[in-house]
């Protein structure tokens, strides 16, 4: 029996709303961090088969920056934030411009890597904070872990977690732009099976 085989439109609407509010908060946090206006597009929430997952982020071998944060306490699982290298540079240039640093190129320096970890940490924190507020569940987040590699290799981590319960990945595609610079970011929230039921239950939706 697959976790998602029982999902109906109401479940999906709830998930979409969680994704939307979570991403909205995350983007607001970035906006205040870089002190620039950030516009968010309406996120899409989809259940994607493993095979086609990477197509949603630009292809299986495209190089992405991935930040993984473990979650624990009332619910457990992980949240992953993915962005392409250009997006990372755009964010870094905004954040580090006060230090006279312009970010570009194929690689990221140590300073840039830790800045990206911190930005991701703040975004994930806002995302999870809103989830916690909506559900009244306590959520603790681990320190962020960063990797830069092929999309499929990074996606294998949340995909395997979903793979234990289902043949799909719950994928939230949230793009936003910073002062006309397009930024593409993707959140993947992976609650374990019990936590998934808890989230739905706390929102008054049975699984």
């Amino acid at each position: 029996m697959s976790l998602f085989s029982n999902l109906n439109d109401m479940h999906l609407d709830v998930l979409k709303e969680i994704g939307s509010i979570g991403t909205g908060n995350a983007v607001t946090a970035v906006s205040s961090l870089i002190n620039k206006k950030v516009q968010m597009n309406v996120p899409s929430v989809e259940l994607i088969e493993f095979d086609t997952l990477a197509d949603f982020v630009g292809g299986p071998e495209i190089i992405l920056v991935g930040v993984l944060i473990g979650i624990s306490e009332d619910i457990s699982g992980m949240i992953m934030f993915l962005m392409d290298i250009d997006t990372a540079h755009n964010l870094l240039s905004s954040v580090l411009s006060g230090m006279g640093i312009e970010s570009s190129g194929d690689n990221l320096s140590e300073l840039e890597l830790s800045a990206i970890e911190e930005i991701s940490n703040i975004m994930a924190g806002s995302y999870l904070g809103s989830l916690s507020g909506l559900t009244n569940l306590r959520i603790r987040q681990s320190v962020p872990m960063l990797a830069i590699d092929m999309a499929n290799a990074l996606l294998s981590v949340p995909a395997i977690e979903f793979g234990k319960m289902a043949d799909h990945v719950l994928f939230i595609n949230s793009s936003f732009s910073v002062e006309n610079v397009a930024v593409n970011g993707y959140f993947i929230l992976v609650p374990d099976e019990e936590s998934f039921a808890k989230i739905m239950g706390s929102l008054g939706v049975g699984v």
């Binding site: 095979d51 990477a54 290799a153 996606l155 294998s156």
Partner: peptide, 23 residues
């Protein structure tokens, strides 16, 4: 060959799978 997928073929053919991580 996709994630959670397998393929079998005779020569001449090349089978590839992209971006193995923990898989």
């Amino acid at each position: 060959v996709g994630m959670a997928d397998l393929k079998v073929e005779r020569a001449p053919a090349m089978l590839t799978t992209l971006g193995l991580g923990s898989c």
